[in-house]
């Protein structure tokens, strides 16, 4: 990313000249910022990348029409991916599995860990719904063979089956498996796998750019006082405290 490297270069320059902490005024800083040329198209691509990766298909469609930015993936596949994600989030794991298989049968066939986590989620949903007998049968038929193939799967399976041993699952050591966060975790794992299968990055670029910004500011803090961005949502430059 060109912006990132510009910041790094500035950092290096400052490092070279500053023995003591240098103070950079707002005017100087803004002048420097104005010198940085960022192409509109690149910004648009970043936005599109975020929308596509996160699955905001309608926004992406609108954004494409308004900005003329072409997404690097067929937008229709986003709808499918979101449907899978939504199914997991709402506890319809079996439905999600079938949808993934329709999308691309290789994903679950070549990704045993993801397949196991989906099956585990299915078991969790059965337990949540109080279908004890069905849960036991499912664990035995579907999950136990995977546990035989892989030690870490076996441990996870044991932890999940432990849910059945507690009267009050909300208050037991493995209770977090029943949390919504567990569904979200599984859903995001599926989402990432589908993206990878479509040769797409599994994370949007924007958050990592923000991380780089924070990192660069922290580095800079040691060398200089400058107008800092503290609130990422507003990106307001705050005057240096000298």
């Amino acid at each position: 990313m060109s912006l990132f490297w510009l910041v790094i270069r500035q950092l290096a320059e400052i490092e070279a000249m500053a023995a003591s902490k240098k103070v950079i005024t707002r005017e100087e800083w803004e002048k420097k910022l104005n010198d940085v040329k960022i192409r509109k198209e690149d910004m648009n691509k970043l936005v599109m990348n975020f929308l596509v990766t996160e699955g905001y298909v309608e926004v992406a469609e609108k954004f494409r029409m308004e900005s003329g930015t072409e997404p690097d993936i067929d937008l229709a596949t986003i709808t499918d991916r979101m449907a899978v994600k939504k199914a997991v989030q709402s506890g319809n794991v079996e439905d999600a599995i079938e949808k993934v298989n329709d999308l691309n049968p290789e994903i679950l066939d070549t990704n045993p860990q993801l397949f196991f986590h989906l099956q585990q989620q299915r078991l969790i949903e059965l337990i949540r719904n109080g279908k004890v007998e069905e849960a036991l049968e499912f664990a035995q038929e579907e999950l136990a063979p995977r546990g035989e193939e892989n030690q870490s799967f076996l441990e996870e399976l044991e932890r999940t089956v432990a849910l059945l041993a507690f009267e009050d699952v909300s208050n037991c050591p493995v209770g977090e498996l029943l949390d919504i966060s567990q569904r979200l975790k599984t859903a995001s794992e599926v989402n990432a796998a589908i993206l990878t299968s479509q040769s797409h990055e599994k994370d949007p670029k924007l958050p990592s750019l923000l991380k780089m910004l924070l990192w660069a500011q922290n580095q800079l803090d040691e060398k200089a006082a400058y107008p800092r961005i503290n609130d990422l949502s507003s990106a307001i430059l705050e005057d240096p405290t000298v």
């Binding site: 599995i97 298989n101 679950l108 066939d109 990704n111 397949f115 579907e142 063979p145 193939e149």
Partner: peptide, 13 residues
């Protein structure tokens, strides 16, 4: 066919 497919994907046994 679809049922067989969904049964076997990811499942060696």
């Amino acid at each position: 066919i679809r049922e067989v497919k969904n049964q076997i994907i990811g499942n060696r046994t």
